[in-house]
Amino acid sequence: MNKLIVDNSIVDSDIFIDKDTDLTVDLQDTEKELNVYVVNGTLLKIFIKTKNTKNKVTYYIDDNSNVVINKLAIDSNDDITINMKDINSSIKYNSSIINYKNNTYTQKINHLSSDTKSRIVNHCINVEDKEFKFIVDGIINKNAVRVDFKQDNKIINLKDGKSNILPNLIVDSDDIEAEHSAYIGTFDENKKFYMMSRGLTNNESDDLLIKAFLLNDMDLSEKERDIYSAIIESINK
């Protein structure tokens, strides 16, 4: 696999991926515009950690390409657009957000072609009493058939945060499968009772539940999991 690293030194630019690539993204306090072109028949795996960002990122995915993105972000106002341009392309995008401020995280998934597949998982821990919003649009073009689109959005409020999810699904085609779901709330009290019945404190129970909530859907290497775990363990509750 080709290996690429994107950090704060990158300028607004176009990135072309024309061979199987592991891309690591590490951005902090940035407001960038990036276009990522995934050329046909390519596997792109992206491991992202960001803090306090307002980036605008657009993906263009060609035929027979597969993109897997795992992202852990602290305070993200990012605006992501994914264009599934050609047949047999797929994307699995896990966004896990730790939120301390007033933020809106926006995603738009455009299925422009037939036989395209997307799995969008957005999870957020709203730590303080601030406002957090997911806006997620799934758009299926009228010429796109046999599209498989699923999005799952969840926000857990640890305190009295104001959270909102706008899961939009605009379908202009027949012969597709689409699902979207949204949940805003707290952790299941029965789970916490069970954990505390074994002697874990409220905070220790929360720590394990938070880590599970943010990482469970991700397919990570041990090293990547350790990096994310260290960030999650620093959450100041």
């Binding site: 069970y194 505390m196 074994r198 394990l208 990482l215």
Partner: peptide
């Protein structure tokens, strides 16, 4: 609190033990 009682040495084997997805058994 429940955890304080548990740490005093009280243990309940529940009738219907729940599952907790993502919380690895060994870590728990």
């Amino acid at each position: 609190a429940t955890d304080e009682i548990a740490r005093l040495g009280v243990f309940v084997s529940f009738q219907n033990p729940i599952s907790i997805e993502g919380v690895v058994n060994s870590e728990f």
